[in-house]
Write a protein that binds this DNA or RNA. Sequence first.
DNA 1: GTGGCTGATGTTTGCGTAAACATCGTGGCG
DNA 2: CGCCACGATGTTTACGCAAACATCAGCCAC
Lengths: 371, 371
Amino acid sequence: MEMAERAPVSGAGAAVEPAGGASRPGGAAKRPGTRGRATASMADVARLAGVSSQTVSRVSNGYAGVNEETRRQVLAAMKELGYRPNSAARALKRGEFRTIGVITFTLSTTGNVRTLEAIATSAAAEGYAVTLLPVAVPTQDEVRGAFSRLEELAVDAVIVIMEVHLLDAATVILPPHVQVVVVDSDAGDRYTVVDTDQAGGTRTAVQHLLGLGHRTVWHLGGPEDSFAAQRRADAWREALVEAGRTPPPLVRGDWSAESGYHAGLELAAREDCTAVFAANDQMALGLLRALHERGRRVPEDVSVIGFDDIPEAGSFLPPLTTLHQDFAEVGRLCVQAVLRKMRRNDPEHGTTLVPTRLVHRESTAPPPEAR
Amino acid sequence: MEMAERAPVSGAGAAVEPAGGASRPGGAAKRPGTRGRATASMADVARLAGVSSQTVSRVSNGYAGVNEETRRQVLAAMKELGYRPNSAARALKRGEFRTIGVITFTLSTTGNVRTLEAIATSAAAEGYAVTLLPVAVPTQDEVRGAFSRLEELAVDAVIVIMEVHLLDAATVILPPHVQVVVVDSDAGDRYTVVDTDQAGGTRTAVQHLLGLGHRTVWHLGGPEDSFAAQRRADAWREALVEAGRTPPPLVRGDWSAESGYHAGLELAAREDCTAVFAANDQMALGLLRALHERGRRVPEDVSVIGFDDIPEAGSFLPPLTTLHQDFAEVGRLCVQAVLRKMRRNDPEHGTTLVPTRLVHRESTAPPPEAR
DNA sequence: GTGGCTGATGTTTGCGTAAACATCGTGGCG
DNA sequence: CGCCACGATGTTTACGCAAACATCAGCCAC
């Protein structure tokens, strides 16, 4: 921090030549491709300040027992040389990297991205960096590969934003000292989990529509291999049964707007379908298009409710009533949880659910027959 | 890789106690909170395999000159102890971290996210990890803070996904040995830049609409402080002037669908507006809603073209004609460029533009008067 | 046969940092 | 007055790894 305003690029390390060149046999030009200008080390700073390197270390780490005058000199020397602690050496010495690894299957869903962003922000606030490990194709080998790399990588803990069953085969190679927190799954018995309250949100959605007078609620679900989708579908069914209604057949999409459109064409053909709960906003978007094309008005003929509350949801035609997921909170809690586990070396698993919030816009209304 | 299928969690390091405990004075329980079970080091493996630690190193790094029999023994010992190279020590010794830092202002735009994803994937393919540094609020202090951290952080190079003018004040503290590549800017004279060909794409959009017979093309631009927006606006104006048309007044949004809606209400009121080029798809979405609400049909009365080709664009009402940005390619080229610069220690700046592609859907048509 | 060469392996050393321990004044107190 | 506690600083050492150099056996050529 203190050296934030040192000289611009080429002027760095101007006055004193950091040790190197002749004196160090092998290690002069460290950074590959750095024209021999090694970065200043603690020893260089110590020499310039006329103290021992240990004193530099003490200043660098903010220890109390350093004379004010000495401290000033050291800081001055640091500034002059543009000294930056070498994090590799630090990590080696301390045995921790101050880095959290995030493994994720894809960044193409809003949820994953927003969660990741929140994780990065929270981690930064705690002095941790975030290393990203995306897994392009979700074969088990891929996942395993990613984790293999993560282990050799400099991470103290791992947050997984991914359907947990993709992780199962990889579990065995998690090194015992790395704590893991998982998002987006219901594997609370085997992992520490932080997630949106899928079931609660779904119940809210269903009850909202029933409350408007709809006889039952159709569900445009996510793909079969997604636990989150499964969970929402289960909760939808339960909520209907609890209310004494008969759940209509489940219609599936794959989270994409396109798949929502296709499913929507089916639903539009059913006269008895007056209310649809879509498992995410993208599919709801496609659904809206299909209903529009088939002349079914929303919300007059059919009510639609989404899940996620993506930023665009308020601009759909009509603006979409949906369940807001607080991804920022999920990300924040992930970091909290993983750091707590790390610090306490806590092997216990816990599940933290973040509630959703119903955002009432213009895509839901009482059914035609109730008017 | 060889140790991918070693024993599950608790069985790690079963047979041989890695050195530690009594023999090492200070360094027994390294990882904080690890109940004293230190991870195995090269020395431990060497002891078990009955070779020197250097031979272990050679096996670990795949050097040729190791006897096949010896190699097998070492690999077996590694497996038994669950040995993983310590990346901190490796980084310290080698003087590089095999990590690229990505600094970005926000992950709420599709472009940034997709670019980031491509960067992470490409970097992984090159054996590099990606460390993420989001800057929540774009004040200069924030940016500076992020870079400060990056320097102490373990990165060999930096990719910036951010309007470059936000970076200017921070530049001075970039350490001289870190190569930088910037996305999303036109600062080719000061940085190496990889970006979508904004101007080319814009020209394509304008020409497409003029080609359909529209007298002129309106522009729903991005915020004033965005270079990308500025660039698209400039190119739009130029393309019109080149074609001998008079550019109508510029209407601005802030990239959001909401802002597109508000701007759209204005545009909908102008009878002479028959074609709009929106600077991104989100704003186009809002624009579509506004036009719909005001009874202006798309594309019969007004043609709309977007920019980005977000996944949802094909599900808009109507499906949006837009310019596809190849973010994956941008990300890939970023990694290529920054690694090349690193390896050659290349101080030269270059600009790489990735072309766009017109995706023709249903939101554009000839103007009413041409029919 | 002996010198040199090659391939396989061991030994030494140092990367930059920070804990542990050592030293060295100074001042307070018995 | 001398001893000791204490604050400030210096010295040693080890973190884990991998270059550089050293060693050593076997083998070929002259």
